[in-house]
Design a protein around this nucleic acid. Sequence first.
DNA 1: GTCGCCGATGGAATCGTTTCCACCTTTGCC
DNA 2: GGCAAAGGTGGAAACGATTCCATCGGCGAC
Lengths: 350, 350
Amino acid sequence: MIKPGSHPTLADVARKAGVGTTTVSRVINGGHRVSPRTLKRVHAVIEQLGYMPNQAARILKGERTKTIGLVVPSIADPFFSSCAEAAQEIARAHDSLLIVTVTNNDPHIEMENLNVLMRHRTDGLLLAPANYQSEALAEFLGRISTPVVTFDRPVAKAGVPSVVTDNYNGARIATEHLVSHGYKRILCLGGEPTLYTLRERLRGYRHAIEEHGLPVIVDMSVKDYKSAEYAIESHLATSQPPEAIFTLKNSTTIYAFETLQKLRVAIPKSIALLGFDDFELASTLRPSISVIQQPIEDLGRIAAEILFEQLLPAKKSKYPSPKKRQDQVKLETRLVLRHSCGCNPTQEPA
Amino acid sequence: MIKPGSHPTLADVARKAGVGTTTVSRVINGGHRVSPRTLKRVHAVIEQLGYMPNQAARILKGERTKTIGLVVPSIADPFFSSCAEAAQEIARAHDSLLIVTVTNNDPHIEMENLNVLMRHRTDGLLLAPANYQSEALAEFLGRISTPVVTFDRPVAKAGVPSVVTDNYNGARIATEHLVSHGYKRILCLGGEPTLYTLRERLRGYRHAIEEHGLPVIVDMSVKDYKSAEYAIESHLATSQPPEAIFTLKNSTTIYAFETLQKLRVAIPKSIALLGFDDFELASTLRPSISVIQQPIEDLGRIAAEILFEQLLPAKKSKYPSPKKRQDQVKLETRLVLRHSCGCNPTQEPA
DNA sequence: GTCGCCGATGGAATCGTTTCCACCTTTGCC
DNA sequence: GGCAAAGGTGGAAACGATTCCATCGGCGAC
């Protein structure tokens, strides 16, 4: 008797179809080595009972869980949600589900999430770590046998493959571009100086500026609109105000734009603006904002692809692949010229 | 012997600690009814072995899977990613994981995702259905025993609780507001007329317009920027061009804004603009865009709360709760007045 | 001193699959 | 016509947790 409210089992199907459990198992796994007649009958019973294999039982028998975990600071952030969408797509192509967890950049929550995911035995992990230098995280990643790929931000000393934007180079190119416009005093504006990505971008800015013998002007105090406004007003009030602003992330870019707009400082006439990371309405604002564009979807997509690449071989050789590839994939950025930096692009696709 | 690369099991812990499996099980489930000495020893072994309970085995014994599924058209869309973040938060508070699947509004993919989620026996489902009228979906939802809550969009005849924005009322209020400015010819612009939300909004517009004896001017042909441009140009070229535009979703609002900007039609002087659904830079654009704002996070949060509410009682009474509540929660919108509709708000927080 | 209870503990069955092995037909080939 | 190979099938043992039930001291109460 099949209890109502509960799910029918493989044995239920077998009994009703008058065959053994082995046969039913074979049917739901491709139907090889089963006679056409039996196949048909079993399929009919499955349909009739609404039978759905219990994944938990399969997992217990050592099969893949067909799930991968995504650990990101936030999923509401368009950046990470785009990565997530790309990763989900790849997961789906590999017949897997994506479990999304949010750390809010808190290493404690991050570790908790990782532990929960490990209980669930996800086949792999996509991780955008809260902290680049975390010893605890590196230790954890070294200890577990589950493949991990970090993206957007790597983690030091963990020997884990990572997919990142070439932040350094992107920032260098951005700065070079502002220099080529003839600006001498270029303010680099940002916040959260602990973040790997921002540090790399800062490094790129610094390198380019110093190469040209220009003054390094850095202000990493921006946390929100208020602090951005304060920072910009301060710099504008100096005897030698900046001629251009390079913002390290898009929230900062927007704060800067709003502040300049409010102060009625003409962009790019009085001060030029160029931001790292594109955002949706950058080309709709007046003036439109020039940016360094990162291949966001590629980050998530390639990270997921590398992850599944590590997963597949385990099916062929039953020994876990000995070499955890430590490769770091660096994706190039693109300088998108709009009006805020002083360029006068002929046309831009909407 | 513990195989390397594999996970230690509860039995491994028991052996190493010199206790029975029952005792270890009790330890990892709160440590009640275990002597302090044993508790300590077992904990030490767990730590040493890096033991992590295998969730699959627990599930097989009839425990909760501690996972809920989220089925949405897209996760890159800021609207759904905000819902997802809210839902994730609630799930975490209930010690559960959130599995995210993307349908791309394709009923076929949707059904496939639902089936995969059912294999995994998620404790519950949060669903933003692709199609309001789908018979197949209603049938499926009626058949499964897993609790489901739909959000943003309900599904007809499924008797499933849903959390939605009061689209009708929001659109009515928006239209009323435009009418109160004295505009007589108000164009309602949108696309995808099959979507529940847009239909409701259209209904609200229509109701308000007719109540005032004004002409109903509807154009649901907008799919992308091109079609928006074409639609707006056509309407502007008529002998009696519209004095205001009410856009039914934010992508349309943006297309409309860009078109008017390109055509150098002054907003709101020559034509007013008011959109349904807020978006990030609506207040930064010039003019800033007046919108109907939905409580997006609340949608995801409340839907998840209702879902877990249905999950909890099952622990007390072991009979599945007989009454699937069919309640529909309707969340109110907010009219956010900026400049594009002709208002002159004193101040707006950034 | 025994009785009965309680706290601490362990043995073993169970959950729903997969899979190893064994068995029984066919069938093709000499 | 015999015989191996191959195809179709099923029984039963895993997988790793939970949990029912039994056992076993110790101890206060009579």
